[in-house]
Design a protein around this nucleic acid. Structure first.
Lengths: 234, 234
DNA sequence: GGTACGATAGAACAGCGTTCGATAGAGATG
DNA sequence: CATCTCTATCGAACGCTGTTCTATCGTACC
């Protein structure tokens, strides 16, 4: 681990000179550009203009790299969420925060896979957790209900993110196949199923075809929040 | 892919003789015993008493192996769920099905990571999806609301499963460290946080410490179902 | 018996995370 | 000014992974 982080950017000519910041920034860039499978130590080293082993001076393992990179961008999300000024209704505040968080995951689908894995190194995630909990303190709930409420919300966020996070089958990543056609192909096979055996699938296939991810998330979130509102007796 | 599956178990002496069934069964056994990282083609081949490349006759890639193994056990879950006889209340039926599904994931935490990834090869997952949708047909909802309702439920299940699914840090897998102590260590660091900056974390740390995963899931599920009930006007 | 094909397997390949040992450079010490 | 120390870097190697290539065995059929 790096002890002294001072004046880290005193680049030599032949040898590269990194910093925790640059390592995480480039790691996030790789994740953004081509997904988790593109983030390898060799690719990252090349991008930093240095050797592979150098990265291990900043990070003990790939897991830690992933955790720190995740927390790095969560820091930005946290700032956005802290900028939201609380309105009168705690549940509305919860909703606004959750939507902000989900928006960030929409832009970075890989986030969902690593988010909140280890609050030991993910300090920002812990602060975000605190921030999500704050509105529940203003609701008439038991401590256990508050704990469960925030768990439920993060569950919905993470669950939705996982759906998004699975790396699309290359064709859509290349841009050769649009997301709509991708969904459409699934819808097509579903439509060919026997209507007797799959009444529900037939009922919703038109909704599935070309559906909006945000809307789907918002629907799930709103069901949970409605339940919470009921529980708080407000 | 194997065309003729007939009389596949006519074992020779030197050469091993597999079958789709045996491949999937042993793959699941490996996953159960030591988690996803233990399922390698070499380990699986050794268990089957054959060569590595033979597995590729049954399965085109590791992804397909995971999808098929997942669907294999989902088949069992589906049977359990189909055995549930519908009661009067559709939402109660949804609840019973979800709990059955989650019970299966509790026993096999790796399930959550692969569940419902690709309904092309996961035929049982599709049937399960249909089964989960059936009760919504008895509720007064629009098609879109039905689609969103089932999505919300699977989201809660998957989201909770992901929390469970992350491979514990070896110590607890070895049995050297119990789950309670593992939670307790997190709780300890949380308690040391500044009470001013983290009022919510302090509020719920006692609930977090030693909490029950099923109860947490049930709470999240019940919030969603309460919201659904409200939406259906029942 | 010969032939076609279902099914098996060993060896090799490229890529991955990780470790090792060597070493360059800046700052302190004499 | 020489030397010593500690931070930070890097190339090369190790063991493991999924995957492919090529050769082969054994059975069913004509």
């Amino acid at each position: 681990m790096p002890r002294h982080q001072n004046r880290a950017a005193a680049g030599g000519r032949r040898r590269a000179s990194h910093s925790m910041e640059s390592v995480l920034t480039e790691a996030v860039a790789l994740l953004d550009e081509a997904g988790p499978s593109a983030l390898t130590f060799r690719a990252l080293a090349q991008r930093l203009g240095g050797g592979v082993a150098s990265i291990y001076w900043y990070v003990a393992s790939k897991d830690e790299l992933l955790d720190r990179a995740t927390d790095h961008v969560i820091g930005g999300v946290l700032a956005e969420i802290e900028a939201i000024e609380p309105g009168g209704d705690p549940v509305d505040d919860l909703r606004a925060m959750s939507l902000t968080l989900f928006d960030a995951i929409l832009v970075r689908p890989w986030l969902g896979n690593y988010f909140m894995r280890n609050t030991d190194v993910q300090g920002n995630a812990l602060r975000l957790y605190e921030k999500l909990g704050e509105p529940t303190l203003r609701l008439k709930l038991t401590a256990r209900q508050r704990f469960h409420a925030v768990s439920a919300i993060t569950t919905v966020v993470v669950g939705s993110a996982v759906d998004l996070g699975q790396e699309p089958p290359q064709e859509v990543l290349d841009g050769a196949l649009g997301r709509d056609e991708f969904l459409g192909r699934f819808a097509a096979t579903w439509r060919e199923l026997d209507a007797q055996d799959f009444p529900f699938v037939h009922e919703i296939v038109d909704e599935f075809d070309g559906h909006d991810d945000i809307e789907q998330f918002r629907a799930a979130l709103d069901l949970t929040l409605a339940g919470l509102r009921l529980q708080a007796g407000a």
